[in-house]
Write a protein that binds this DNA or RNA. Structure first.
Lengths: 329, 329
DNA sequence: TTGTGAAATGAAATCGTTTACATTTTCATC
DNA sequence: GATGAAAATGTAAACGATTTCATTTCACAA
C-alpha cells in the first residue's frame, strides 16, 4: 500500500526517478536504479494503475460485446482476443448484452466514461446507430457479425461462399431436397447465407423451394428443435438440412432421432461454426469451421491499432468445411 | 471530451457544485442544478471514471477467475455474478487462468495494482498460498470450488450429499455395479464426491470396488471418452456410471453408443452440473443441478460486502437431482 | 583548474475527480 | 433593518502516477 512518494523518500531520490526506473524509458545510473529497486522491494510497492491511467488518459481495458456468454461459438474468438490483448498489456471486459439495448447502454457508457479504451462488437443485434456515433470518438471494431457500409472496420468470413460450399457438399453426396434453417434476415450474414444456399441450388438446376426455407428467432438448440419439427411435417420431406448454426443443427439432430429417423440415412444435417460440442453429438456434426482464434487475434490487433490512432482496414478470413458423420454416416 | 472544469465554467459555478449535482449526495438549489445540467447537456459531458477512481481509490471492477471459459458449468454462475455486480455499479473482468500459474499471476497483479477491487475465484487449481496471502490485503471470495480452512469465505454446495443422492438413485433403480468417474483427488470436491459415492454403496451393503473408480486429469469430454473406454473393457462391466461432471458424462455417453451399447439399458449414466448441453444429448442426461445463478449472486454480494470492509460468512446452498432419460430410458 | 556538453536527477505541473473546510447567501425572527 | 442559524456554494487539497523543463553532476579536454 505504499505509493511512489514513499518509495522515492526511502530511496533518497525524487519521484521522477522512481517513475523512470519503473518504466525503463529513461536513463538512470545503475547505482540509483539499485537503490530504487531495493526501496520497492522493501516497501512491497506496486504502482497503482489508477494514478497511471489518469495521467495517461487510458484504461488499458477493451470491451467485448457478445449477445450471450453461453453460445460456444464465441469461445475461441474470445481466447484469441484475450491472448493478443494480454500481450499488449490490455485486459478484457466481457460484456453480455442479452441483445437488450439497456445492457448495451451500460457498456457503451463504460467507454464514454473512459473506463474502456475501445470495443470489439460481436453482437449482431447491436444498435448500429449508437455504434456509428460512438465510433466517431472511440475505437470500435466489428468481429464476425457486422453491419456493412457504416464505416466501422470489421473482420469476418465470406458467409455466402461458406454457405455455398456447405450446400454444394450436400448436393454432391446426392441430396436434392435440402432445407435451410436460417436466422432472421435482418442480419446481414443471414441474407448472405441464403444467397449462398440459392447459388448452390441454381448451379445444379435445383429449383429453390420457399417451403424449405425456415427462419428462427434465435440460433439456439430449442429453435433448432422447433424448426425441425416443422420440417418433418412437410409432405415432401427434405432429405437434408443446412442450419446456419451448430446449435440449431444439434436441435435438429435431436428432433430427427426422437422421430425415429436416422442421421444421415433419412436426413443429413450440416451445421455452421464448428463449436466444440459439434464433435460430441451422436452422430458428430458436419459443419463449417470459421477461423475463430485468428478472427479474435486479428480483431484485437485492429482495435489496438485503432486505439493508437492508426487507420485500419477490414479483413475477410478463410473458412473450411469439416465433413463428419452427420452427412457421411 | 469536456471535463468538469469546463462544465463548471459554462454553468458559472464551481467544480464542487458540478460534482454535487453529479453525485446527488449533497444539496443544491433547483436553479443551479438546472444550470449545471444544461451545461452538461450542452458540452456532452461524461464524467471520467479515471479521475473519480483515483480520487476514490477504487476501480469498481471485480475479477472472476475460471480455469477455462469453455466449460459451460460456469455460465449461469457468471450471469449471477454479473447481474449482482452491475446492480451495484461494478463491472466484471472474466479471467481465464488455463490452470496456469503465469496467467493467474497476471490477474493477481491486476488487483495488486488496484485495477480490480476484488476476486471471485472459481479455479480449483488456483495457487492457494498466493490466494491466502492476497486475501490479507484484498477482498477475495471462493465460489463453487474452495480450499477449506484457509480462512477465505466461500459459497458452495454439499458435494458429499449430492454425490450420495445421485448414487442412491442408481441403486434404487436396481444398479449394483456402479462406476465412479472422478477427477483428481487433490481437489476437495473430488474427495467429497467419492465419500458420498461410498456412503451410498455402504448404506446398501454394496462393497466398494476400487476397480470401478476412475480418475481423470480434467473434466472434459475427451477425458470422459477415455475413461469410458477403460470401463467398457472391464471384465465385470458396470451397469451404471456416475461422472462428477456433465462433460465427462457426455463423453461416456458417446463412447457407450459408439460401442454399440444402449443407454440406459446396457449402461446408465449420471452427470453433475446440469449444464445446458446435458439436455441436448441423446438420451438426455440425468444430472445433479447446482443452484448456479444463486451461487453467482451470493458470491458477488459477499465480495462487495467484503470490499466495503464488512466480515462475511461462508454459505452452503442446496442442490437437486434431475432425473432424465440416461437413467430411466 | 576551468570550461564544456552530455548525462542524470529534481521540481512542479498535470490528468479529472471528490470533499473537508471556509465562505457567502438566504431568510425567518425580532 | 439588524441578527443569527441554516443552507448553498466556493476554494483548495488530496488521490498517484508521468513528463516537461530546469538544474545539478560528471567526465573529459584545454
Amino acid at each position: 500500500m505504499a505509493n511512489i512518494q514513499q518509495v522515492a523518500k526511502h530511496a533518497g531520490v525524487s519521484v521522477a526517478t522512481v517513475s523512470r526506473v519503473l518504466n525503463g524509458h529513461d536513463k538512470v545510473t545503475a547505482k540509483t536504479k539499485l537503490k530504487v529497486e531495493e526501496a520497492i522491494q522493501y516497501l512491497n510497492y506496486e504502482p497503482s494503475m489508477l494514478g497511471r491511467n489518469l495521467r495517461n488518459s487510458e484504461s488499458r481495458i477493451v470491451l467485448i460485446l457478445i449477445p450471450t456468454i453461453s453460445n460456444p461459438f464465441y469461445f475461441e474468438i474470445i481466447k484469441g482476443i484475450e491472448n493478443m490483448a494480454l500481450s499488449q498489456n490490455y485486459s478484457i471486459l466481457l460484456c453480455e448484452t442479452d441483445s437488450k439495448p439497456e445492457k448495451e447502454e451500460i457498456y457503451f457508457d463504460l467507454v464514454r466514461k473512459k473506463m474502456a479504451d475501445g470495443i470489439i462488437s460481436m453482437d449482431p443485434a447491436v444498435n448500429v446507430e449508437t455504434l456509428k456515433e460512438l465510433a466517431q470518438h472511440y475505437a470500435i471494431i466489428q468481429c464476425s457479425e457486422y453491419g456493412g457500409g457504416i464505416g466501422i472496420p470489421y473482420v469476418t468470413i465470406d458467409s455466402e461462399e461458406a454457405s455455398y460450399r456447405a450446400v454444394k457438399h450436400l448436393i454432391q453426396i446426392g441430396h436434392k431436397k435440402i432445407a435451410l434453417m436460417n436466422s432472421d434476415e435482418k442480419f446481414l450474414y443471414a441474407r448472405e447465407r441464403r444467397m449462398g444456399y440459392e447459388r448452390a441450388l441454381r448451379e445444379h438446376d435445383i429449383p429453390v423451394n420457399g417451403d424449405y426455407i425456415f427462419y428462427t428467432h434465435e440460433l439456439g438448440f430449442e429453435q433448432g428443435q422447433m424448426a425441425m419439427k416443422k420440417i418433418l411435417r412437410l409432405e415432401d420431406r427434405p432429405t437434408a438440412v443446412f442450419a446456419v448454426s451448430d446449435l440449431l443443427a444439434i436441435g435438429a439432430l435431436k428432433e430427427i432421432t426422437a422421430a425415429g429417423l436416422h442421421v444421415p440415412n433419412d436426413v443429413a444435417v450440416v451445421g455452421f461454426d464448428k463449436i466444440d460440442f459439434s464433435n460430441m453429438t451422436n452422430p458428430a456434426l458436419t459443419t463449417v469451421a470459421q477461423p475463430m482464434y485468428k478472427m479474435g487475434t486479428v480483431a484485437a490487433r485492429m482495435l489496438i491499432e485503432k486505439i493508437q490512432g492508426k487507420t485500419v482496414d477490414s479483413v475477410v478470413l478463410g473458412h473450411e468445411l469439416v465433413i463428419r458423420e452427420s452427412t457421411t454416416g
